[in-house]
Amino acid sequence: MTASAAVVAITSVPYNALEWLIEHWSDELREIGAELGIEMLEYTFMHHAFLVGALIAVMAPLIGTFLVHRQLALIGDALAHTAFAGVAVGLFVNATFGTGISPYITAVVVAMIAALAIELISEVTDAYNDVSMAIVLSTGFALGAVLISFNTGGLAVGINQYLFGNLATVSRENVIILVVLFVVVTLVVLLTYKQLLYVTFDETAARVAGLRVPWYNRVMAMLTAMVVVGAMQIMGVILVAAMLVVPVAGAAQFARSFREALLASVILAQIAVLVGITLSYQYETTAGGTIVLVAVAIYIGAVLVGKVQSHQVTAEETRSIPDEEPAD
């Protein structure tokens, strides 16, 4: 708990309120578990895991929908790897100066700086480019690896937790960090939904309409950084981007409107997280990997549903072949 001493000093009231809420959530789940005889709901860490999972399954597809439909899925991966550098910075600082800052806090800071850097580079070069994104990705990961190797001994276990995620280590403090990230991300998206949608659909038209496109791109990149760090606790650096992409790709198979796509991707992600966490508890597998496998299975199901659906649509409306159809 010393880790958050600084944070607590500034924001002790909301912090205590959140703590109370999380305890309350825990009690509720424990009761439900006792009543229905669900064994895994006896443990506080599982309460935390389900809460964190549910929040991740809202904000990851929320941001992911905007990213995927701009062909920017890779940015999540790049930021996750730079977030790993942020974790390393946190561990390094703690080991060197004996402080107790949560590595997730430093991860958020570093990832957001990286997000801004990626945006500014793309503004200058006038394109998101695979190569520069790949360079940012590897630089982040390499930096993390090197920083961690400075702290020899005792840290190996800690790294695994960040690389692959871990259900059992989701502390109450980490839950609070995630809740704060969740609130910020959802509020910003609610506030700028229209602008983000316009920019996602047609950047040039959005610029002509007077929207400050670079500004919204920066906002989007920063939100991505927050989501990635938030989801890292369970998913781990390596698999976190999957939560941004897989449910969204699944939803796109059958959704007609953008709102439908958003909603469907959140629902698919919730299913993946709930089933994934339960399975990983039952079979003692790693949570991140299990969740992603469930998500991919759902995606395959969605592809099949989408195929059947589009067959029906084709039959109904005798859909156009581009070069004919007297349309108007």
């Binding site: 439909h69 659909f201 796109a252």
Partner: peptide, 27 residues
């Protein structure tokens, strides 16, 4: 502003005609 058919780039984006037209109200 009406450009050449831009939907080529966003081929798979799920969005309805009504949603696109409503963008005109966003400003």
């Amino acid at each position: 502003y009406v450009a050449q058919d831009v939907t080529e780039n966003t081929k798979r984006m799920p969005i309805t005609v009504a949603e696109v037209v409503l963008m005109g109200r966003f400003p």
